[in-house]
Design a protein around this nucleic acid. Structure first.
Lengths: 290, 290
DNA sequence: CGCCATCTCTGACTAAAGTCAGAGATATGC
DNA sequence: GCATATCTCTGACTTTAGTCAGAGATGGCG
């Protein structure tokens, strides 16, 4: 009945009218949409005026006026930037935080209402995650982070859970050779997290060793991010980091149950080698000269 | 990391900015968005001015002016309605059709571009279908249609395909008692299709018999529509139609592999009865007095 | 036919968004 | 230290969207 393009366009129509409804609901607080958007951007932690302008795609004149209105309402204060007095930094006043909280409550109620009328929540949420990731694809950032950071630990948790589902015998971290966090910090290695609009959707670790090579560990892409070629991007970033650290040889181990991963390695210049450790889980071993 | 509400809101953010981009791309043709929307509504077959106004949520004055602009551009012609000279009917001129085609091409290119950058098309499309159905939930219409109509045949095809996947031994329509189309037309019975923005997403047949009861057949809800309680709505509509036809007793057969269906029947007043036909596929039989 | 309802159109507004040029303050590089 | 770039702000617009009241034409119905 419907070809792929028509399906995308049906989605676009549905979403366009939903976004319209969402926007008009923000008008209920007696403030034009532009001002409400600026207030919310500040509330969500964007303080640098130029950054907000950029994020919302506003002209500098318009932005300035919207800020002025919010100041007149007593919701926002602006000050010069600490390091650069040309820039301005906006913060919410007490009243501004109250007003922002009201918008937040509105948004939350709406989201809850949408979920409540659906009886297959998890499937719906997974679909939303997938689409959100696909739509924000170009804005995914790959950030080096501490392997003990909240984001990194979240990724690792999801990664272990996935291994548990994919391996017939399950997966128990304590049996695996859990890399020491300090081996995945500079200068020995690094840990990279892919972030899509505050949500971690993938990671990879570069673990330094004392054996003349570094290892790639914990390559993971969230189910919602499959299809975005995130694995490839993460591997490229890890290899770049390795080159930057002067590393000449990389190794990794994996399991043949993770077919996509194996394919990715083979396609990007890795070659299979004999087992080089005694970890019980992996059954495939690769290396790559940089 | 993320609770359900945050996930919905992440989706909202992603989609809001995507819709913004989509809208502004329509501005490329030198026409304000309002006029472009009217042109496209006409191009998509909405000709009655009041209907367009209603669909786009426009004030009558605004609508009138937008139409006038399109007429001045030579893209649209309006005439009195055949049966009611107060109403106006808008049609595209030759130039209007060209312009509409340009907008269509733009939309299609965008949709294709979005799909092209993703390597898991079918999963992505399924997610979009699901969300589009959830968002347009209140606008789903249940229409009585001929069981030989294109929409009905599409639904039945999907239904059979699903049975093929769900039954261990597969499903072959020719072995099943394929109901005669005329038994699912008034006055013997009916066939109801659920339509969400032109896409059929579910169906149910009411099949008249000469044995003192009618049968419910072919209850189907598209995978993308699961969770919308569409099965319940379709059954209610079928029962209402049966009552309208003076039918006092309904029967149906189903298979225990279709667990949700069985649950639905039990929860809505149906009681299990012994086998009443020799169809090889069903293993569960129900009836309900109206 | 007359009355009232319905539909479209016009005039006269307002509000919001967006544009553009230039001024003033501050940073940066040579 | 000076020229140049960057950032914000103001004034002076324009465009788009939307609102409201009322006029004019037509339809439905007793």
């Amino acid at each position: 009945m419907l070809d792929p393009v028509s399906r995308v366009r049906r989605f676009n129509r549905a979403v366009t009218s939903a976004v319209g409804a969402l926007d008009t609901s923000f008008l209920g607080r007696g403030r034009p949409l532009g001002a409400a958007r600026v207030l919310n951007a500040i509330g969500h932690g964007r303080s640098d005026v130029a950054e907000i302008r950029d994020y919302l795609g506003l002209d500098s004149g318009l932005m300035s006026r919207l800020l002025r209105n919010l100041e007149d309402e007593g919701l926002v204060e602006t000050n010069a930037h600490e390091d650069d007095a040309r820039r301005r930094v906006a913060t919410l006043t007490r009243a501004g935080r109250r007003e922002f909280a009201a918008y937040e409550a509105l948004s939350n109620t709406q989201a809850e209402g949408f979920l409540a009328q659906h009886s297959q929540r998890e499937a719906l949420l997974a679909a939303m995650d997938m689409i959100a990731s696909a739509l924000t694809r170009e804005r995914v950032t790959l950030d080096e982070m501490d392997p003990r950071s909240e984001e990194a630990r979240y990724c690792l948790g999801e990664y272990y859970a996935e291994l548990g589902r994919r391996f017939e015998q399950g997966f128990d971290v304590s049996l695996s050779r859990d890399p020491d966090a300090k081996d995945m910090r500079r200068p020995r290695g690094t840990f990279i997290v892919a972030i899509s609009d505050t949500l971690p959707i993938g990671c990879v670790g570069l673990k330094g060793t004392d054996h003349g090579y570094a290892e790639i560990k914990r390559l993971w892409a969230a189910p919602a991010a499959r299809g975005l070629r995130l694995g490839r991007r993460l591997m490229d970033a890890a290899e770049d980091a390795a080159r930057g650290l002067g590393i000449k040889l990389l190794r990794l181990d994996t399991n043949s149950a993770l077919a996509e991963a194996g394919q990715l390695y083979r396609r990007s210049g890795w070659s299979e080698i004999p087992r080089f450790n005694d970890d019980p889980y992996p059954d495939l071993f690769f290396e790559k000269h940089l």
